[in-house]
């Protein structure tokens, strides 16, 4: 079963807020000068910010903020965030891989940015409401 696609807009302002809230102040997430110096195309989102947004998609699908039992991803491609008002978009979709007899639902997740997959092996197990 395919779950409804969810889209998350990401701007530079979001990265600044996430840096403050998470304590990850790596300059590749706010300084183009620094990011390009280390070989990146520009400022990129924190991998953990992308993972957090995908986590929001998972809890929305699950219908409960406390439903996540297991959640893992591999970061395959950076999410480049341009310095403008619109930023970029992360598009998240998933299929239900398995529903267990013990009330767990396993999801295979796909997250893309500008048409490219930014995560692989993205999987979550959620407790099914009931």
């Amino acid at each position: 079963m395919e779950l409804p696609t969810q889209t998350f807009q990401v701007t530079r302002a979001d990265l600044v807020r996430y840096a403050g809230a998470s304590g990850d102040f790596n300059p590749i997430h706010y300084s183009d000068r620094f990011a390009t110096k280390v070989g990146l195309p520009g400022v990129i989102a924190h991998g953990m910010f992308t993972m957090a947004l995908v986590g929001r998609a998972v809890t929305t699908w699950a219908g409960a903020p406390d439903a996540v039992v297991d959640y893992g991803v591999r970061f395959t491609r950076p999410v480049v965030v341009p310095d403008d008002d619109t930023g970029t978009e992360i598009v998240v979709s998933a299929v239900v891989r398995e529903v267990t007899e013990t009330g767990l639902t396993r999801l295979d997740i796909t997250a893309t940015c500008q048409g490219d997959k930014v995560l692989s092996q993205a999987r979550a197990t959620v407790r099914t409401a009931g």
Binding site: V68, D70, G72, V73, F75, Q121
Partner: peptide
């Protein structure tokens, strides 16, 4: 260093 993988396995929130 680049971040490769990340996983959380919960006993409770």
């Amino acid at each position: 260093v680049v971040h490769g993988d990340q996983r959380f396995a919960y006993t409770r929130p």
